[in-house]
């Protein structure tokens, strides 16, 4: 012990203090508390897939001038062209996602929006009067407001 330098001694003391703190914290658990902690952890872990997959996208609805132009099943990859007043809006389904790949509109907002993958997401190509929306099993609101 005496051969240790002051710095090493300090480090060892800090390490021992940590160990003592952990040991004294563990001593506060009663047998059933472990059970509760385990149940709570399991709930936490399970809640991730349950909450984040439930509203998985199922299909995409393409509207042209307000009328439904096509309903696409997202499990089948394909490309579809939608004619509008300005030209062709091209929509691509790939790996359960969908996006607008090209649009004759000026600002390209709907193209720049990229991939849509969650129920309720929508891309609107207003100049060409085309909208692309993902719907899940149940209808969701398209905005949060109060």
């Amino acid at each position: 012990m005496s051969s240790l330098s002051p710095a090493e001694n300090k480090a060892r003391r800090a390490k021992n203090a940590w160990r003592a703190a952990i040991v004294s914290a563990l001593a506060l658990f009663r047998p059933g508390d472990w059970l509760t902690l385990l149940a709570a952890s399991v709930f936490c872990v399970l809640s991730f897939p349950l909450a984040w997959n439930s509203a998985a996208a199922e299909k995409a609805v393409i509207r042209q001038n307000g009328r439904i132009f096509a309903e696409l099943n997202l499990s089948r990859d394909r490309r579809i062209n939608v004619p509008g007043p300005l030209g062709i809006t091209a929509i691509l389904v790939e790996k359960k996602r969908v996006r607008v790949v090209s649009d004759p509109g000026m600002h390209q907002y709907c193209v720049r929006q990229g991939w849509l993958e969650r129920a309720g997401e929508i891309a609107i190509c207003a100049p060409n009067e085309v909208s692309l929306q993902i719907t899940g099993r149940e209808e969701t609101y398209d905005s949060l407001s109060y």
Binding site: F43, S47, A51, W52, S54, T140, Y141, Y146
Partner: peptide, 16 residues
Amino acid sequence: LIPDNGLFYLVPLFAA
């Protein structure tokens, strides 16, 4: 306050 099921996306974060 937020009558939307999208709120439940936050459940895992709040649970953690």
